[in-house]
Amino acid sequence: MTTLSYSVAIILMTMGLWAMLSKKNLIKKLMGLAIFQTGIILFFISMGAKEGATIPILDHHGYGGIYSDDYANPLTQILMLTAIVVGVATLGLGLALARKIYAHYGSFNEDDILANLREPNE
């Protein structure tokens, strides 16, 4: 478990990067971006996890003392919470751009778009 969650995060990041670099389809590139993002979120969340700790919501309004070992780290969680929402907004922006490109060139494929760019009369 110690290295597994970090390794899975890195594998996901590598997979997303590979999809963004080598896939020709714009939608597949955006999916690679989403997978890269979840990899980073997984990394942050596993950094903030504590063994034997519960969720960061206080029981019984904190009677009987609050010890930081008992609750998972809220800081990494809120950073990632806002990152998810902003991620979907930027994903929508990327999809809008892809939609516009499709309306112009009739394809999601990078090579077709490049060929159309070079010969605009076609």
Binding site: S5, I27, L30, A34, T38, I41, I45, S46, G48, A49, K50, A53, T54, I55, P56, I57, A72, T76, Q77, I78, M80, L81, I84, V85, G87, V88, L91, G92, L95, A98, R99
Partner: peptide, 26 residues
């Protein structure tokens, strides 16, 4: 891992809304 708020957001956003966005474009 104890991140319920993040999981809630991901269920609503990542699995719900972003799938709808992709399908709307496709």
């Amino acid at each position: 891992m104890g991140a319920v708020d993040v999981a809630f957001t991901e269920a609503a956003v990542g699995a719900g809304v972003s799938t709808v966005f992709f399908i709307a474009v496709l």
